[in-house]
Computed example of a mutant assay.
Amino acid sequence: MGAVGVLIVAALLWFLFSPDPVRVELARVTQGPMQVTINNQGQVRVHDKYNVAAPVAAELQRIELHDGDPVRKGQTVAVLKPLPMDMRQRQEAVARLEAARAMAREAGLRVRRADTELQFAISERARIERLIKDNFVSPQAADKARTAESTARAEWNAAKSREQAALADARAAEAALSAADLPGAGTKRQVQLVSPVDGYVLRVHERSERTVSAGTPLVTIGDPTQYEIVVDVLSTDAVKIAPGNIMLLEGWGGGKTLQAKVRLVEPVAFTKVSALGVEEQRVNVLADPIDPLGPLGDGYRIEARIVIWSADQVTKVAGSSLFRVGDAWHVFVVENGHAREREVKVGQRNQDEAQILSGLTPGDTVVRYPSNQISNGTRIEASNPAGNR
């Protein structure tokens, strides 16, 4: 009986003086799909815009077109009556014409280059498909080849559009120069500026009749059925993005997530001042929509998530449960009401979750937001008994 009494007294003392368990939030180790994304705001814009501008100083006739009106290639969109030129102005007009012709020649060369790259991409895709059929390469290679072909085709279309715009600018500059009068010449001739492509009027910059200077934008034309998504990201993030990556479009006002595919990561960065006044080097990422954009139009804002890594089945845990010990990652695993510190090996991480390569198994329970009150062996009590967040 004496021994039993001692045990009872010891148990009573332990109950009275032992520290209370620390209340913690728990999370379950799960298995499932995971993505790593680069997130930022972006906007929808028309793939190719064409600005019809006054090639020389002139009297602009009233423009009867309105925003949203359809136009055909070659349709007159503005009429000018060039003002008389002195010798200096004529030399400037000649220089603009020569520059426009040079741009047209450059655009033609870019079309030929884009055509060569497209033909190579087509032949490469066909070659890869033959190799897959003979089991020489994996089927994943076909996806890369098709993406390369799609990118090359988009670049060819863009190059053709730029060539059409450059040729239209050259014709307008030539017509304006030939119609301009020297001082003392007779009646002024009219110059008709035409649409370089089939499309819609996106904006009429100058509607009323007035005198305009050379280079004044008059009408912007584009095809609102051909959109692209542009998102600027930090240059340190841009190096992780590649053509073919999926871009998820959210926060645009609709109830579903839309998909786009990255077409180009621009090779040149630019400086942008953040809301905190910090200068950042940013890079534009361009993507082509996969899903129909519905009511979205030119300049509409979207929230973009660019997927740079994904997997269907990974062991993952809430990122808030991880903490550093030296160069290693550790967690507190719940065992019989106590926290047990354990080292884990972490793979990919996103804002919410971390991939676990070793150290944990699905179904384990870990402590989220571990504080300094917790150490190896600390008694804990769950504030969220389910522990499934």
Score class of each variant (00 low, 15 high):
residue 317 V to M: 07
residue 317 V to G: 04
residue 317 V to Y: 04
residue 318 A to V: 09
residue 319 G to M: 10
residue 319 G to V: 08
residue 321 S to A: 13
residue 321 S to Q: 06
residue 322 L to T: 02
residue 323 F to E: 00
residue 323 F to D: 00
residue 323 F to A: 00
residue 323 F to R: 00
residue 324 R to N: 10
residue 324 R to A: 14
residue 325 V to C: 11
residue 325 V to I: 14
residue 325 V to T: 14
residue 325 V to L: 12
residue 326 G to F: 03
residue 326 G to I: 02
residue 327 D to C: 09
residue 329 W to P: 04
residue 329 W to N: 12
residue 330 H to K: 06
residue 330 H to P: 04
residue 331 V to L: 00
residue 332 F to M: 03
residue 332 F to K: 01
residue 332 F to W: 05
residue 333 V to C: 10
residue 333 V to P: 07
residue 334 V to A: 08
residue 334 V to Y: 03
residue 334 V to E: 13
residue 335 E to H: 11
residue 335 E to A: 09
residue 335 E to F: 07
residue 336 N to K: 15
residue 336 N to H: 15
residue 337 G to E: 01
residue 337 G to I: 01
residue 338 H to M: 13
residue 338 H to C: 12
residue 338 H to L: 13
residue 338 H to I: 07
residue 338 H to W: 08
residue 339 A to N: 00
residue 339 A to E: 00
residue 339 A to F: 01
residue 339 A to G: 01
residue 339 A to C: 00
residue 340 R to S: 11
residue 340 R to A: 10
residue 340 R to H: 13
residue 341 E to S: 11
residue 341 E to H: 07
residue 341 E to F: 07
residue 342 R to E: 10
residue 342 R to Y: 09
residue 342 R to W: 08
residue 343 E to H: 07
residue 343 E to R: 14
residue 343 E to N: 08
residue 343 E to F: 02
residue 344 V to M: 01
residue 344 V to H: 03
residue 344 V to I: 09
residue 344 V to Q: 04
residue 347 G to Q: 02
residue 348 Q to L: 10
residue 348 Q to S: 13
residue 348 Q to Y: 13
residue 349 R to C: 06
residue 349 R to E: 09
residue 349 R to P: 07
residue 349 R to W: 06
residue 349 R to G: 04
residue 349 R to N: 04
residue 349 R to T: 13
residue 350 N to Y: 02
residue 350 N to G: 07
residue 350 N to M: 05
residue 350 N to R: 04
residue 351 Q to A: 15
residue 351 Q to K: 15
residue 351 Q to V: 14
residue 352 D to S: 15
residue 352 D to A: 15
residue 352 D to G: 13
residue 353 E to G: 06
residue 353 E to K: 11
residue 354 A to R: 03
residue 356 I to T: 09
residue 356 I to L: 05
residue 356 I to G: 03
residue 357 L to E: 14
residue 357 L to W: 10
residue 358 S to V: 10
residue 358 S to Y: 12
residue 359 G to H: 05
residue 359 G to V: 02
residue 359 G to N: 06
residue 360 L to D: 09
residue 360 L to W: 06
residue 360 L to A: 07
residue 360 L to Y: 05
